[in-house]
Amino acid sequence: MKTKLFLILILFVGEISALTAQETARERIERRRQHTVQQQEAGTNIRMEQKNRHNDESIENAKWSRIIYRYLDLTKEANAPLYYPVTPTNGKISLFTMLFNLLQENSIPAYEYLDGREEFTEDYRVNFKELLDRFGIYYETVDGKIVINDIDIPGNEVEGYFVKEAYYFDTANSSFRVRPLAICPVLQRRDDYGSSTRYPLFWVSYDGVAPYARHITVMGSSLNNSMGGSIDDFFRMRKYDGEIYKVQNPRNLSISQYTSTPEEMKAEQERIEQELIDFEKNLWKQENHSFVPQQREVKSRGKRKSPASSSGISMRDRRY
């Protein structure tokens, strides 16, 4: 009799544990659902924002443009706002957590990282479950839905981003512009021997991410904690510090592919940076194109005009 009671008690405890685990998973789903509703309420006009975001001249029609690829190292102080908080804290999340949640909710598409090019087509669209399996990210499946605990999102391992930028001259507005076009989170994993390997996860179009990024705040300065802004502000205002690893070119080569040493690569990066700076500076060099007519000397019967009273304009001073 005691043995039967003992077995019944074990079964009862097991059922309660399973039920509790199931309820925990359901609670996660409900929390995700509420988060999605909040995002939808906050971004009612997100699709309209995406359509009306750029009224300026498209890059394809620009008179001058250059596509630049940078790597943002999140261990650098300037890029730290994109990394923290590693785990969602008090309603604050990092850039990667935002991207991860959007992919899980199927709010934005992501595309495979291909070596040397980006293909934003359905053929290369990322399957979220396959992404989780490929990189060993733990998840549960409850009622056909993928449930992931915040602590299992590998935000701590995403230590960098590839950023694709467009530098171009907008002739419609007579202005020099820099726009982020796409971003790619880079996972960095270390083995037992201390060596690390970078794994680019996926590309996302920045225009698709921007409406959500405007609602995610970051700390703008460690010296002035009142200075803040959104992730979108951080990218639009170019507050990040990233080294150039590639410039769009006919052979589609990265800088490391056509330089031989780290010193050559560094010199090439600095040369490209200086070219971008010089181009922008040269646009705003004001030249006086006004024509100053030569003044005829008026002869007077009185005193002769002294040299000091002349206009002082010489051929060297004139600009045509």
Rank of each mutant, 00 (worst) to 15 (best):
D143H: 08
E27T: 12
L187Y: 01
I16S: 14
A80R: 13
E118C: 12
K285F: 13
L99Q: 05
M265S: 15
T24A: 11
G208R: 08
R31E: 11
L19T: 08
L276V: 02
Y138W: 09
T259Q: 08
R238Q: 14
Y84V: 15
N127T: 05
S174K: 09
W64C: 10
E243C: 12
K145C: 08
K145Y: 09
L253T: 10
K305G: 07
I153K: 01
L5T: 09
W64H: 14
D170W: 03
Q269E: 05
E275G: 04
Y113N: 03
N225G: 06
F169K: 07
K63N: 14
N224M: 07
D123N: 07
E297T: 12
E60P: 05
G312T: 01
A166K: 11
W64F: 13
R66H: 07
P185D: 06
E27M: 13
R70L: 04
I68Q: 00
T3F: 15
I146Y: 02
L102Y: 02
G91K: 09
L19G: 04
L11I: 06
A21I: 11
R47I: 12
E49K: 10
A42H: 03
V178M: 09
L9K: 05
R316Q: 07
R236S: 12
I108D: 01
R53Y: 02
F291M: 07
P307A: 04
K145N: 15
A62H: 02
G91R: 06
V292W: 08
M48L: 11
F96H: 00
I153D: 00
E287N: 15
A78K: 14
N55S: 13
I108E: 01
R31V: 06
K4R: 15
V158Y: 00
Q248C: 10
E49M: 08
P154M: 02
S195A: 05
N127Q: 05
R177Y: 02
E118Q: 15
E130I: 01
K76T: 14
Q248K: 15
H215I: 07
R177G: 06
N90Y: 14
L99P: 03
N55Q: 10
P185K: 00
Y161H: 12
N173E: 03
L132V: 02
R271Y: 00
L181A: 00
R179V: 11
N282L: 06
V147R: 02
A210Y: 07
V126E: 03
R236N: 09
L11F: 05
E287S: 14
